[in-house]
Write a protein that binds this DNA or RNA. Structure first.
Lengths: 110, 110
DNA sequence: ATAATATGACACCTAAGGGTTTCACATTTA
DNA sequence: TAAATGTGAAACCCTTAGGTGTCATATTAT
């Protein structure tokens, strides 16, 4: 038993474009709430809510340093997404290469 | 110009557990709406809505055969997810292998 | 022809998601 | 110590998500 207090599903956490963008921001370096917020055209409160979701999904953690709270990225939960994707990769190589060809060359069955 | 009429983001489409499960069902074989519905404790109408979302994300397609409508899986949109994940894999191998070790062996920094 | 089956199309409900503003409090900085 | 900065927390709003039930219609099966 460990790390299982995730209140938010990682798939749900990454469903929102803003949240994916925040992850991208934190990938380069850790940032304070104010710093993150400065990148978006929305209120700090809204960003904090997104950070809460990301935190509960285990994708970020925040620690207080003085008066600011600095968030950094945590990649572990992405393994779940990767594993989920891996399941479909078996079909990928069998079918997708063909399908992709068909799609790119459009309506073959017309 | 092709396939770009996706009204629903693939990340949003896979955010719902039921929808991920429907994808899993369709991975084994194509199924009619009634057949899909029989696997869940919810109304056909609800399932149809999920199928609509999946369709608009490009993850499934349905074709009418007689009086039933048969859905089958389409994997292409998952490439977007895969690419997104790949971006983070650069950190994965650098940091995650270590992190994973730390996590699995719990609180090292205590 | 009739009955059973499968789906389509609505109207409707409730909770949750994503956003806002406002105010209070803690911590720096001048 | 006074002002500025960064955050926490609450109340509120609107739209959408996910679900329901009902009725009509098309297609099989008896």
């Amino acid at each position: 038993m460990s790390e299982s207090l995730k209140k938010v599903d990682v798939f749900q956490a990454i469903a929102d474009p803003t949240r994916r963008d925040v992850l991208r921001l934190l990938a380069s370096k850790e940032r304070s709430i104010a710093e993150i917020t400065s990148n978006y055209d929305m209120s700090r409160t809204a960003i904090v809510k997104h950070l809460k979701v990301l935190t509960e999904a285990g994708l970020v953690t925040g620690q207080k340093l003085g008066r600011e709270k600095v968030y950094h990225l945590k990649l572990e939960p992405l393994t779940e997404v990767k594993q989920w994707l891996d399941y479909y990769e078996q079909f990928w190589h069998n079918k997708l290469s063909k399908l992709k060809f068909l799609v790119e060359n459009e309506n073959e069955d017309k």
